[in-house]
Structures are given as C-alpha cells and as structure tokens.
Design a protein around this nucleic acid. Structure first.
Lengths: 350, 350
DNA sequence: CAACGTTGATAAATCCGTTAATCGGATCAA
DNA sequence: TTGATCCGATTAACGGATTTATCAACGTTG
C-alpha cells in the first residue's frame, strides 16, 4: 500500500541500509557517497516516501511518547484551570523535546500495568497518585519511569519521583496574611466531594495548625465548611455565624462559588468577609472582587516533572526523588481588614 | 529483555501461533484444545508475559490511536473551559471504544503530513481548521480521516468532516433576548488578538445582521469593541458611550473580563449594562452577576465528531460531511431591561 | 610487495506478534 | 474404499525499518 523503504531502495538501485542512512541518518557502519545520497533523496521525494514509525519503534524499542494520567478524567472539565496549566506545562516540554503526549484513560489497576508495559510509552506523568499499598506495588512493578504530580511522597523511597507543592506553607501564608489584616476567626472551606483528595486534607490540617500557631485559634469542627455548593446553604451558615470574618478555600473553584453565594446573600466583599483561594490562575482575575489566592506554580511544576521524566528515560538518576515547590500568595482584592476590629485593632497591611 | 510470545511458546512447548490464539484470540485457522489453552495461560501468567503492542500494531497496521490538534496549544491554558469540555468529549468517546488519545503539537505544514502519515494515528480531530488553500491541499493529501471541530466547511466538499456550531443563530438569540428586554443600542466585544479567529468574525458579522434585522441598528464601527482588556480602557469607552445599554461578547472569557472592568468602573450590573457571553460553561455560574450566555454544546459536538471519526476509520461513509449544531441561550443574571426605557418602554421577559 | 586503513556499499539478522498455508490423523458419508 | 471434513497444531512468511557483519576496491606506507 504505502511506499516503503524497500520501494525506495529498489527504485534507486541501492540497499535499504543506504536509504535508512541517507534519509534518517541511521546505522553507524553504513557509508554512502554524496552522489548516491542525492539520488536517494530525489527518488524518495518523487515516490513521496514517508517512514513508518511503527516499524522504527519496534526495531529501536523506543517510541518518544509519554503518557499522562489524570486522576478523574471523566469530570475534570468542570474543574478550574489547574488541569489546563498542567497539560500545557507537560505538553510544552515534551513537544520541545520531540516527544509525543498520550492521554490515558482511568484504568483498573490490572489494566494499568498492561498499558504501561506494552511498549508504547517510555514514561508517565501521573497526577495525584495515591499512596496505598496497591499503588506502591504497581510503582514497583512498572517497567517505565513514573513521575507523580501533586502527590506527597510515601515514607519509604520508591522508584518514582514525586513532585508536589508545599500545601502547608501555602496555607500558612494565607493565615498569616489574614492575621496581619486583623482577622481573629477564620474558617476553611471545601466542597463535600473533595474529602478524598490528599491535597484537600493536607490543606485542611495545615489550616488548623497555622490558625493555632499564629492566632491561637483552637481546632474546632465548626471551622471547616464542607458543603454542596449548589445548594444555597451559605446564608444559613452566615446567620448562625459565630463571628468568622474570613474564609480560606481549598481551591480556586470553591472560592469562586463562595464569592457568589456570599454576594447573593447580600454581603459586601471583601468588607464583610475576606476570602482566600488556592491556585491563582487567570481565573482569579475574573472574579469580583478579584481573588486573593495562594499560588502554586503548576506550570513550572509540570515542566520540572516532565524534564525529570525525560532524564529518567535517558537513564539519568534524578537529584531528588521528591521535590516540593514553595507556594506564594497573590494578594488581590478579596481580602481586607475585618469589619469589627478585634481587641488589637486592625493592623496596617504594609 | 522482556518476555516475548516466543518465550511463552517455548516454555509451554507449543508454537507461537497457539499462544497468540489463546492469549489474544488472534488467527482464524489456529485451533487449540482447552487443556493446552489452560497450560499456555498458566505459563504466561508465571512468566509475567505482556504483549508488545508495537509489534502487533506493525503487523496489523492498526494502532487504535487518534490524534487531537489544538490550534494554539502554547497559550490555551489562559483560555476558558472550552478546551476542557472539548478534551473531555473527545476523550470519553475514545476511551469507551478502547482507543488512545494523542495530543499533537502545533506543527509546520510540512511536518503535519509526516505526523499524520507515519502510521501511528488512525484519524485526527482538528480544532479550528482554517480554510486556506494550503490546508485544503493538506486535507486532500492526508492518508487518514480528519474531522474538523469548530471550523466552517469550505465551499467545495472535501474528504474531511466539519463540525461547527451555528454562530449566526446563537448571536441572533442573544440579540433577540436583548431586544425583547427593551434594548435599542447594543455593542459587540472581542479581544484584540482574536481578530484572526473564524468563529469571532462569524459572530461579529452575525451580530451586525441580527441587530439590523431585529432592531434596525445600522452596522457601525463604533458598535464593535476591540480592546486589549488588560488595559483599563473600559471606563474611557463608557464615558464617551453613545447610549449603549448592552454588550454581546464573542466569548465567555471576554465577557468575564468585561464584567470586571465594568464593575471596577462603578457600574451596577446588570441594571446599568447588560452583558451576554458565548459558550455557557460552568464558568458562567461563577461570575457576579452570573453570566447570561449563548450555549454551544461543546461536549456533544466533540462526542459527535469523535464518533464520526471512528466510523470513518472503519470505512463507513458519514451521513453528512458537514454538521452544524444549533446554539441555545442560557439566561442568567447579567441581562435585564435597560436603565433608560426606550420609546416602546420595557418589554416583559415572559 | 605485503600490510593496513579507508571508502562505499550490501546481505541478512533482528524487533515481536500475526496469519496464511499446510499437515497428520481421526471421523464420517457415499 | 475413496473422498470430504474437521480437529489440533505447526511452519514460515510477513509488517517495515535498523543494524551488525562482511566485502570489494583502492590508496598509503614502510
């Protein structure tokens, strides 16, 4: 059907080795004169020859393809821009290095090993890898390198590299910011279905720790709002509000929804209530008021993860098997001093 | 290195054909008794055999892989949720059919043919395919089926299938909605760099046509706002405003940014200014006020496009080589009657 | 002149799973 | 008894590019 290297070789009156050498630069011990090379190139052009990459991949045992696993592909379109940045970061590094990117479906554990061991992928970026025994076993059995994104490294070192952001310090920045503004009672919010996310849990725990350390706020179940935001429950909570003046949200999206509920309930933002989000993408610029948010260098993390993966594929041992990126805080317009000044009075925000 | 089918065959004392038949169900004329089959399966399990998909793909000339081309991968992370829905729609259909999804980088025209003709892809979903002669030639030369998303079909039929939304009727719905509310002077907004998007141009032209038809508003350059939204130019425009009471935006993102600029300029929305967006994703629920928006069934379109592509791959001729999906209008809170009632007075919105 | 290096090029093995062709033997109908 | 059919299984040829081993011819050098 298609034109093969043999067709070209026959038409040019040379061996396939010569064609392979001239057209693709392969084969060390193959030497071709300039004249012949020119002829071969010309014939190939005439015949409109296109190399079959499948054959090459089989022979060389390389595919220049990397896989990407999202933890919840089915529902990620509803999510914020986190995934877009992730995809952009991974893709840009791969494409720059002439690699291909394959999106993998959510797979059953048994199928994953088959997918990762079928020779089609040289490595995989795995988002939000969990830390259970089954997964650790899988990492051990996996024949290709794995880099985990936004997954905390397990206690015992594994073959996989873990890239994450420092949730604790990020949340601490948020609490510190609010404390400086004069807030004395802060809540933490997440959507009800996010209970299973390791990131969410880490941030919640960090919130309790930071609130206690910086403001003496003892951990209290009422500090954590876990709602189905599609219901207008905010107004109810706010009425029974035991004095909260600020809310830190586990994600950008939660913060966006909270802004809406609060506005609908008649609150004036940020004067009545300060809100902090987590992720700081372009989305934060589009809310009203613009959202103060902990920033996680998603794109940078993705780039680092991907570069590390490419190094692993080349057999280079990484410097670190676990890297945590620091978080920042992008102060925008959704945070200000609390309405009722506390015992210390409002603190000027430099 | 890895365990091959030959290793299994040798260990089980049978031919590779038998192993292939038992483990993968391949080969019509190959018959294996149940006893042998059991032995083979056992041996394969013991040896931890995993078939090499590269070899299979080469032999069968099939890869069960489809490519996806974005028109601007490098910057799409800044965009709205459009891409997420697109990716979700394409991916879900592919995965359900046990296909793989490969994201392709932006390529030079010469490289594209190489990429699409190297045997690795069985078909491609191509977003925002342009209509220039070079691209039409490429469609003609492409050895695998193409389905174009959000691309208007060219005049002369091609081998590619075109899936788009009905921009004109969508914009008409928006104008109609505003006209019914009593608006008599409407502007159209897009970001300055979007001038090259076919969708954007189509929507602009449809705006002029609908505004003239439904409200007698003669096309006027001042009706179109083309701004760099990062600059706070809205206030200036508003002051020199010749009486506009509503703005239709070419995209969701433009609308979101406009809401912010207007709010910052001290306008009360939607009382002072009605705003309509285009795309109606979850994002519209997060703005304040929630964004009234023309809805384009992105996910559905992507699913249709992908199913059509899978049919093309199987050699089935599609019923239509061009399908336009109707748009709807999701009325939310960003549109209401204009502040100054026109000659007819406000019309109740049913 | 023998030894040796270099250039130009090829044949054939290899990657690994698939499949058409074939084969011995048993069964069965005519 | 002959011929046809089916069962169980194997052999060997693919698919298309890469690569090792090998070779002829020619020039150089001591």
């Amino acid at each position: 059907m298609a034109v093969t290297i043999r067709d070209v070789a026959k038409a040019a009156g040379v061996s396939t080795a010569a064609v392979s050498k001239v057209l693709h630069g392969r084969g060390n011990s193959v030497r071709v004169s300039d004249v012949r090379a020119g002829q071969i190139r010309e014939i190939a052009e005439q015949l409109n020859y296109r190399p079959n990459v499948l054959a090459r991949n089989l022979r060389t045992q390389r595919t220049h393809t990397v896989g990407l696993i999202f933890e919840n592909f089915g529902s990620f379109a509803a999510g914020p821009l986190y995934y877009m940045h992730l995809l952009e970061g991974v893709g840009s590094v791969l494409f720059k290095n002439h690699y291909r990117l394959t999106i993998l479906p959510e797979l059953l554990h048994d199928d994953i090993l088959g997918s990762l061991g079928d020779g089609q992928l040289e490595g995989v970026v795995w988002c939000k890898l969990t830390r259970d025994a089954q997964t650790l076993q899988l990492i051990h059995d996996c024949p290709i390198p794995i880099v985990a994104m936004n997954a905390p490294a397990p206690a015992e070192p594994t073959d996989a590299v873990f890239v994450a952001c420092d949730n604790a310090s990020g949340i601490r920045l948020a609490v510190e910011h609010l404390a400086k503004l004069g807030h004395r009672k802060i809540a933490f919010a997440h959507e009800i279905q996010e209970l299973t996310s390791p990131d969410c849990l880490e941030r919640r725990d960090a919130f309790h720790a930071s609130a206690k350390e910086l403001m003496g706020q003892e951990p209290n179940p009422a500090d954590v709002l876990a709602w189905d935001w599609h219901l207008p429950e905010f107004a109810g909570w706010w009425k029974s509000d035991p004095g909260y003046t600020a809310i830190i949200c586990w994600s950008e999206r939660t913060a966006g929804t909270l802004i809406n509920r609060a506005t609908e309930a008649g609150l004036k933002l940020p004067e009545d209530l300060s809100i902090v989000g987590f992720d700081s993408t372009a989305y934060c610029e589009t809310t009203t008021p613009r959202l103060t948010s902990v920033s996680q260098p998603i794109s940078e993390m993705a780039r680092y993860a991907t570069n590390t993966l490419l190094n692993l594929i080349q057999g280079k041992r990484p410097e670190n098997f676990s890297l945590t990126f620091p978080c920042g805080l992008d102060v925008r317009d959704s945070t200000t001093s609390p309405p009722k000044t506390g015992p210390l009075g409002p603190v000027s925000s430099e």
